[in-house]
Amino acid sequence: MIDLATYAFTGIGLVFFVAGTVGLLRFPDVFSRLHALTKADNLGLGFIALGVALQAETWRQVAMIAVIWALALLAAGTVSQLIARDALIKRDGR
């Protein structure tokens, strides 16, 4: 039962990663590409973390996976904001 849930959650995560990657490769400008990328980072990694956490043997491991996900979210969010701001400045020529 738990194995099944792990398959399901990591499968959903992989779908988000594939979709994000396709978007990253196909979308026309920086902003929509960032939009695609953050979906993969946030939801894709989130679902994979959830699926892997179900396999954890101790609560400590669950907590560590949660911290890793939170840190990846923080870094991804910050970096995409910075990239978007840089692209805005370049576009508006300021």
């Binding site: 840190l71 923080l74 870094a75 910050t78 904001q81 910075l82 701001r85």
Partner: peptide
């Protein structure tokens, strides 16, 4: 700004 907030949140961790 966003970088300043990041610079406050990440260093303790």
């Amino acid at each position: 700004g966003i970088m300043t907030s990041f610079g406050r949140v990440l260093p303790p961790v």
